[in-house]
């Protein structure tokens, strides 16, 4: 169980204090998948990075299984929370082989049987032993993201934080990676928090989701409510409308109303 209460994060930019997250609260039961959706600048990634312990300065309360997570965390606390980043091209060390990348968390946490664990972690994400000796530039985007998922899972965490894990991938590869994430969660009773701007991706993976805007949660609803369009706020309804595709009649009426000429 992960609980976030009244979380606020502010960044300092050129002497000004810019609030990025303002009083966000939600709870995710063990084994559930929770989605945070929103547009750029809504604060969704900042929430995720704060939970991951990547941001030091924040207010509020973050609890995992009843234990508060402070700004400073011990090794055991760090181990149970792992993260998969958006860009599989940037998150893997370009000069390290896959085996070395996967060995790093094991070494940091003093875990033994590294060879066996590396092979098992690769097998879990559908890559065979030969991938141990490859460098990132010898992998496709989908394979890289599989390695990043293996790296997150090799420490057997309880919670996996996913930051736009498929937005850099082609649709067919995205579908494979989403299937993989879904299967791994069921097999291991993992808890997911997924950040994405793509409602389709969030609905595919999560049971519940929160819509963020300007640092605040606007609405929290189930994935099936989103599918049916049964949401309470205009903003969430607008997001659903937009992700269903372009509506020529509505848009042209808006253009006509604005009375703007284009030449």
């Amino acid at each position: 169980m992960i609980r976030v209460e009244d979380l606020s994060v502010a960044f300092r930019a050129g002497g000004r204090v810019v609030p990025a997250v303002r009083g966000v609260s939600f709870a995710v039961p063990k084994g559930a998948a929770f989605g945070l959706v929103g547009e750029s600048g809504s604060g969704k990634t900042t929430v995720l990075r704060t939970i991951a312990g990547l941001i030091d300065d924040w207010d509020g309360r973050i609890e995992v299984d009843g234990v508060p997570m402070g700004a400073k965390r011990d090794r055991a606390a760090r181990r149970q929370l792992q993260m998969v980043f958006q860009d599989p091209y940037g998150s893997l060390h370009p000069r390290h082989t896959v085996a070395r990348t996967l060995a790093a968390p094991l070494r940091l946490h003093g875990v033994g049987e590294r060879d066996r664990r590396i092979d098992a972690a690769l097998a879990d994400v559908g890559l065979d032993r030969r991938f141990r000796y490859r460098y990132p530039n010898q992998l496709s985007g989908g394979q890289r993201q599989r390695v990043a998922i293996a790296r997150a899972l090799i420490l057997e965490p309880a919670i996996v934080l996913l930051d736009e894990p498929t937005s850099a991938l082609d649709v067919s590869v995205q579908a494979e990676v989403l299937d993989l994430l879904d299967r791994l969660r069921r097999e291991r009773a993992l808890t997911y928090i997924l950040v994405s701007h793509d409602l389709g991706v969030v609905v595919r993976l999560c049971e519940t989701m929160a819509v963020m805007r300007n640092g605040e949660v606007v609405e929290t609803a189930t994935a099936s409510a989103f599918r049916k369009g049964a949401v309470a706020t205009d903003y969430a309804r607008g997001l659903i409308e937009s992700s269903r595709g372009y509506r020529r009649e509505t848009r042209m009426a808006e253009v006509a109303e604005a009375g703007i000429r284009t030449t």
Binding site: E39, S40, H197, G238, L239, S242, S243, Y246, R247, R248, R251, M252, E254, V255, T262, T263
Partner: peptide, 19 residues
């Protein structure tokens, strides 16, 4: 973002339809 996306498309749409 999705909400901006559609207003950009509307501009292109208008150029095809009207011009």
């Amino acid at each position: 973002d999705v909400t901006v996306r559609h207003s950009v498309l509307a501009i292109l749409d208008e150029l095809v339809i009207a011009h």
